[in-house]
Amino acid sequence: MVEYRIDRRSGVATYLQIVQQTKQALRLGLLEPGDRLPTAREVVAATAINPNTVLKAYRELEREGLVEPRPGLGTFVRRSLARPGAAADSPLRAELADWTDRARAAGLDHEDVTALVASVLEERFGKTAAPGERGHEENG
């Protein structure tokens, strides 16, 4: 089960924060197909946000084919976003860790590394990263 953290000052629409945090959980394997998302009631009781916002977020996730509502039961995860390469023990991660160590040895600090990674990501993926993705801490 995920627990949503709503940042009212982030400037990101509340429903988008829920969408992004759900995807994040799917990517990291915290949510797997068959898992139930918290009900709108549970979410709003904890976060004190508008229930329609939660429903809007779930509709968005449903539209993307990530979740499906089962009447009377709740909303369930349909497919995962976890890729083998993103898992905590994947070779790609190990390579990135190696590279980060080297960057550090070369005298780059945290901000330098982040800027460098962001610029490469932008160059290779194009401008897709939504601002809401920024705030999440690394899991691992």
Binding site: A40, R41, V44, A45, T47, A48, N50, P51, V54
Partner: peptide, 14 residues
């Protein structure tokens, strides 16, 4: 305030 708002929204959701 947060708790009361949560209760209120839960009621609205339900």
């Amino acid at each position: 305030r947060h708790r009361m708002m949560g209760v209120l929204m839960a009621e609205a959701a339900e």
